[in-house]
């Protein structure tokens, strides 16, 4: 290996915005420990869109919670922007959950502004920022609506806006479109890419939809169950920006089938 190559390798890992190593996790339950993850390493560089796919129960959500600092793993280390940390890092890491998790007694605007309120930013400032973000996710006219007055897709947009208001270096998303119908899901994926082109931070996106993973990502992490582990890291070298028609190209289908075979072979 030549010296320049070595250096390139080193800068790439050093640059990882978020990284976990040697992650081991079991849930403690009344019926004894339930193993969820075994020896998982994962890192994501700046401005990378990384998806995690795998069968249900393989520990995707657990891994994301560990990345978010919401679950403390049984063993292993977590680095955010190079620093070894535990617990949530609201200035650097934001999370959007599958069920949008909006506060039902707050309007869309107040939900989006909530992270800034927790940081005790002045009201005028946080409302201006929240409006700006609502506009960005296409909900400019819905600031005063309450979550139950919004459709599932709109609630999810509010949740994304709320995560983005934290200006996170890393955005973690756990099947954010999992509860939506297929059409809305495609629209949301397309919009997420458009939004991401603008913000261009690091995204870690959990999904069980392989086409969605290929369409969105720079790389896809394939996981397997029992024990929950990473089996492969697939680079998605499709050009950007990606129009929806890309999903019909041979290359796209090839990548999707490759992921499919990888998951099948583990069962």
């Amino acid at each position: 290996m030549t010296i320049p190559q070595l250096n390139a390798e080193r800068t790439r890992t050093d640059e990882a915005v978020i990284r976990v190593t040697g992650i081991q996790h079991s849930y403690r339950t009344a019926r004894g420990p339930v193993p969820a993850l075994e020896n998982v390493d994962l890192s994501a560089g700046p401005k990378r869109f990384v998806s995690i796919v795998g069968p249900s129960g393989c520990g995707k959500s657990t891994l994301l919670m560990i990345l978010a600092g919401l679950v403390t793993p049984t063993a292993g280390e977590r680095y955010v922007a190079g620093a070894k940390v535990t617990g949530p890092q609201p200035d650097q890491v934001a999370v959007a959950f599958q069920d949008a998790c909006l506060l039902p007694w707050r309007s869309a605007l107040d939900n989006v502004a909530f992270p800034l309120e927790l940081r005790k930013d002045p009201r005028a400032e946080r409302e201006a920022r929240a409006r700006e973000l609502l506009e960005k996710v296409g909900l400019a006219g819905y600031a005063d609506r309450y979550p139950r007055e919004l459709s599932g897709g709109m609630r999810q947009r509010v949740a994304v806006a709320r995560a983005l208001i934290q200006r996170p270096a890393v955005l973690l998303m756990d099947e954010p479109f999992g509860a939506l119908d297929e059409q809305t899901r495609m629209d949301m994926g397309e919009e997420l890419l458009r939004l991401w082109d603008e913000i261009h931070n690091t995204v870690i996106f959990v999904t069980h939809n392989l086409a969605e993973a290929v369409y969105l990502s720079d790389e896809v992490i394939v996981m397997a169950a029992r024990p929950g582990r990473v089996v492969e890291r697939v680079l998605i070298d499709l050009p950007r920006p990606r129009p929806v028609e890309i999903t019909e190209t041979e290359k796209f289908l090839h990548l999707r089938n490759r992921l499919w075979r990888l998951i099948r072979s583990q069962e």
């Binding site: 978010a68 949530p88 890491v93």
Partner: peptide
């Protein structure tokens, strides 16, 4: 109170006190 509300407030950096006054009590 929905576990998800609790968790998402934590991820946004809510202190234990804020968790109580802004999430648990109103919910």
């Amino acid at each position: 109170v929905d576990e998800g509300l609790h968790r998402s407030a934590l991820s946004m950096g809510a202190s234990p006190r804020q968790l109580l006054t802004k999430v648990l009590i109103p919910a």
